[in-house]
């Protein structure tokens, strides 16, 4: 038995779902075509590569790597084209870079940061990364998180460090096809609990799980 070197924190929970498994970035990923009419879609995006860094010089260092840095705390901006990945500023001086399926920036940054300069501290990211989308997304969030998501101004590209059903999460609110599209990251050791709880609630409004149509 050769266990893949990367497994999603919720790998075991997805085993019973129908769909095709394929390796993406070395991680087995269940791929399902998304239903077009589901009120709520949960997607495991843990397979994406990501890199974290913090410290007083982290922003300068990232800039020296050719990146455009979100200038305000708790905001994000896209990585340079043609990538659709993101760079998020978490608070004042911490950053999360997540690649898209087609980019490989995070591993490069990790490599470059192996011997970090002063006041630059790499942060190993092993998150459960999921996406919530569809018209019922806000209903799910309203049942699980004490923040007013409807009041967010998406044009400001906000990032929210908050707590969802007792788990610390990072949220990136967005929109897709006129419906809310939220990316969420949390400590993978809370992954099973978070995923199972969200799925249970989502199922009540007819939500579905797809994994993964990025």
């Amino acid at each position: 038995m050769n266990t893949p070197l990367r497994l999603s924190p919720i790998h075991d929970l997805l085993q019973s779902l129908p769909g095709n498994w394929q390796a993406i970035n070395g991680m087995p990923v269940l791929t399902v075509s998304p239903p077009t009419t589901s009120p709520l879609i949960l997607t495991d995006r843990s397979c994406l590569t990501r890199f974290g860094v913090k410290g007083a010089n982290a922003a300068d260092w990232l800039a020296s790597q050719g990146l455009t840095i979100p200038d305000r705390p708790n905001s994000w901006c896209p990585l340079p084209n043609p990538s659709a990945g993101i760079i998020a500023r978490l608070g004042l001086s911490e950053f999360l870079i997540e690649d898209s399926l087609s980019s490989r920036l995070a591993p490069q940054l990790a490599m470059a940061c192996q011997t970090p300069p002063a006041k630059v501290y790499p942060v190993l990211r092993q998150d459960l990364a999921i996406a919530l989308s569809g018209p019922a997304t806000h209903e799910l969030l309203q049942q699980t998180c004490n923040l007013n998501f409807r009041a967010l101004i998406l044009a400001d590209r906000p990032i929210l460090l908050t707590s969802l059903i007792g788990v610390v999460v990072t949220l990136l609110p967005g929109e897709h096809n006129g419906h809310p599209f939220y990316r969420l990251w949390c400590d993978g050791t809370f992954g099973n609990y978070l995923w199972q709880t969200l799925v249970a609630i989502a199922t009540e409004f007819g939500g579905t799980i797809t994994n993964v149509e990025l």
Partner: peptide
């Protein structure tokens, strides 16, 4: 309410 009780599991739980 639903009463959420966070649980934490290591990657080897299963």
């Amino acid at each position: 309410g639903r009463s959420f009780t966070p649980k934490r599991q290591t990657p080897l739980h299963s």
